[in-house]
Amino acid sequence: MKRQVPLMLVFTLALVMIVQYFVPNDFSLDTNEFLLKWIIIIGIFAMALGIWSLIRVSYEKIRRRVPGWQYPIATLLGLAAMIVFGFDYGRHFYTQEGLENYMFIHLFQYIIIPIQATMFSLLAFYIASAAYRAFRARSVLATVLLLAALIVMLRFNPYLGTFGVYLEKTTSWLLNVPNLAAKRAIIIGLGLGAVATALKVMLGIERAYLGRD
């Protein structure tokens, strides 16, 4: 019961979804719609588990006074503030109205957005240090990679004159021809691998995700 029911569920539902793809009628579409909606709803309950995990881990750090235990307080305060503002007890609710709370929007705009954008912009520095790392690479393959990267990076360099024009042409060839070929090979391989994995899941061969007693 503990083991068989989940495996049967997996097999049946996967089969339903596959058959559903080939059957275009209303019943089939409704089934698809329902199943996907349900997954999203179950996801909300999982979210509660997630928040619970975050609270517990933070609380444990504070309780055990691990080094840097003060910081999780910021996590818990941010969490609490956002949840309270998100629910907005003062107003009356309508679907997303809790989310229209003044502070909720402001916390989103002045905390989440700037940090998010800054984290993203760090990529500029990281890509530079990654390029530097590639420079030091000693293997032949890494050198091939670096050369291709250099050609593409230098293509707009105005100091290169005519040479730059060649680089630009080479770049567009690189991106349109070998790039296309390699991506195609990878995608075909990925497709086969993904389908094989899905089949293994369906047949209950791959079941690490179900755990064991």
Binding site: K37, I40, I41, G43, I44, M47, A48, G50, I51, L54, S58, G68, Y71, P72, I73, A74, T75, L76, L77, G78, L79, A80, A81, M82, I83, G86, F87, F93, T95, Q96, E97, G98, L99, F104, L107, F108, I111, I112, I115
Partner: peptide, 27 residues
Amino acid sequence: KFAEHLFVGVSAAYWMSVGFWSTFVGN
């Protein structure tokens, strides 16, 4: 460290609230 921890808490609750209102209450 402060920004990171604050960011984690605020954003986790953000997604929780959005999910709660749009899916749980809305659907």
